[in-house]
């Protein structure tokens, strides 16, 4: 498909494929979370994205913005951990930024995701460098100016870069220096979503 016109079906494919990716990687996410968190990130994300896929399949929204807003709403409702409101806010705010357009360009998606990522930072009071999902999301959105592949690579690199960081937000921050040496589970799942986006964009 043309990379310059992304329609609702493209975003449904992204979310459905994300449910599959998250399901496949859930054990790894939970393992990372058991090192510095409360060992529920994989199961929470699996539950949330399964609900997203089910909702989008039952009632496919007509626009890209509506797809992402519906997905975000499901995540807030079903995840049960901090990743629910955080990813929910990311998708809802991005969806809201895309408005009612039936198709959006990659540049419009990038601008929407920037609004979404900023909202996540505001909600969690976090910034890049705090060892959170923002360390993957922030560089990924910038790299989307180049290509979907570049965004996926930047997200992956950002997630890996959390290993030597000390956590300053969330439960991991209670561990202080002992949070160093572990890859952040939220940054890892964020990288997974961007890897899936690149796959779907082909």
């Amino acid at each position: 498909m043309s990379a310059s016109a992304l329609d609702a079906a493209f975003f449904v494919r992204w979310m459905t494929a994300s449910a599959a990716s998250v399901n496949r990687e859930a054990d790894r996410l939970t393992e990372l979370d058991s090192a510095i968190g409360d060992a529920d990130h994989g199961s929470n994300m699996r539950r949330g994205f399964a609900a997203v896929a089910k909702a989008l399949e039952a009632e496919p929204p007509a626009t890209p913005g509506a797809v992402l807003m519906a997905a975000g709403r499901q995540l807030v409702s079903t995840v049960g951990g901090a990743s629910g409101p955080l990813y929910g806010t990311l998708l809802r705010r991005t969806g809201k930024a895309l408005g009612d357009a039936e198709q959006v360009s990659v540049d419009e998606l990038r601008a929407g995701l920037r609004a979404g990522v900023d909202a996540v930072g505001q909600l969690g009071g976090a910034a890049p460098g705090d060892k959170t999902m923002l360390d993957a999301l922030d560089p990924a959105v910038d790299a989307l100016a180049t290509s979907f592949g570049a965004a996926a690579a930047a997200a992956d690199e950002g997630a890996r870069a959390t290993v030597p960081m000390q956590a300053r937000k969330g439960r991991a921050s209670y561990l202080g220096e002992r949070s160093i040496g572990h890859q952040d589970p939220g940054a890892t799942s964020s990288a997974l979503l961007f890897a899936t986006l690149a796959e779907v964009a082909g």
Binding site: G84, R92, G124
Partner: peptide, 15 residues
């Protein structure tokens, strides 16, 4: 704490 704070904030901000 944690997700309780974020969930209420997200519900107030978006929904």
């Amino acid at each position: 704490l944690g997700s309780a704070v974020l969930t209420v904030k997200a519900l107030l901000a978006e929904g």
